[in-house]
């Protein structure tokens, strides 16, 4: 556990100093800070326009950070030979991989925390919402963190055997497809003209691919007509699904990395 924690904390230290990540974070904070000015351009209510834009900026930039942060992690360690000075110590490969992953998630949590904090402060000062509305807005980034942890697990899994550039396209592609899985499946399942085989295929594909759409909850402020029957159960299931998927990806990553020649 000591080794995993040591590797994780060094990964956080390195991540928060990576200029490219800091630039993305800075742009995100800049965008978040000008969101109030964009409200007037929207036909929707100012509050819902503000919240949906905040969510979009946090989600999009967090995904970018998650991918860029993780695709280079393992290849860089090998290329710079740092991994040798670590693996020749009493550190198993699975500990190294988990340390890197948890470090990435901690760094992500830190960066997303900064974005969320700024958003909440702005929301509070500009809209003076009541506590329930604040809680509604604060809940979403927590689900996004689980979503980004899943995305980081995908990227770190592929980083054990593919080059960073290829990994970038795979991870980005999977995330983009994963964010439209629910509507994609619905369009197949509800269309009477869809052949049964296509419906089965759609079901299979949507079951295998990571479903990121679940993490974009229909916020009652944005979608007053959508009611989640049992919110606690929905959140638990969504978080549980993410953790299960992450665990599977990490186990597969460990198996691949364990046999890899570094």
């Amino acid at each position: 556990m000591n080794a995993i924690w040591a590797i994780a904390s060094s990964t956080v230290g390195e991540a928060i100093r990576r200029k490219v990540l800091l630039v993305i974070l800075l742009i995100a904070l800049l965008l978040l800070s000008i969101i109030p000015a964009l409200g007037v351009l929207s036909a929707r209510s100012e509050m819902s326009a503000m919240i949906s834009t905040i969510f979009f900026v946090i989600r999009f930039t967090s995904a970018l950070i998650a991918i860029i942060l993780t695709i280079y992690m393992i290849p860089n360690e090998i290329e710079r030979r740092t991994i040798y000075t670590i693996l020749c110590k009493p550190v198993q490969r699975w500990q190294f991989l988990l340390g890197k992953y948890f470090g990435a998630v901690l760094a992500l949590a830190l960066m997303m925390g900064i974005m969320t904090a700024l958003s909440l402060v702005m929301f509070w000062f500009l809209k003076h919402p009541d506590a329930s509305k604040m809680a509604e807005v604060a809940k979403q980034p927590i689900l996004y963190l689980v979503e980004m942890s899943l995305l980081a697990a995908i990227a770190i899994f592929f980083s054990t055997f593919v080059a960073p550039l290829v990994n970038f396209f795979i991870s980005t592609g999977l995330w983009l497809v994963g964010t439209v899985l629910n509507p994609l499946y619905d369009s197949f399942a509800t269309n009477p003209q869809t052949a049964p085989i296509m419906k089965t295929m759609a079901k299979l594909i949507t079951s295998i691919l990571p479903n990121f759409a679940n993490y974009d909850v229909k916020n009652p402020i944005l979608h007053p007509g959508v009611v989640i029957q049992n919110e606690a159960s929905y959140y638990l299931k969504t978080v549980g699904y993410g953790f299960m998927y992450i665990a599977i990806l990490l186990i597969l990553g460990i198996v691949v990395f364990d046999r890899r020649e570094v």
Partner: peptide, 28 residues
């Protein structure tokens, strides 16, 4: 045992002292 690789890269954000503490923690 220990190993010093050819032209290794160490975590540049760490100080010399922090680097040693990091490697020491890998031994628990």
């Amino acid at each position: 045992i220990s190993y010093l690789p050819e032209r290794p890269y160490y975590y540049e954000h760490m100080t010399g002292f922090e680097l040693l503490k990091f490697y020491d923690s890998l031994f628990g």
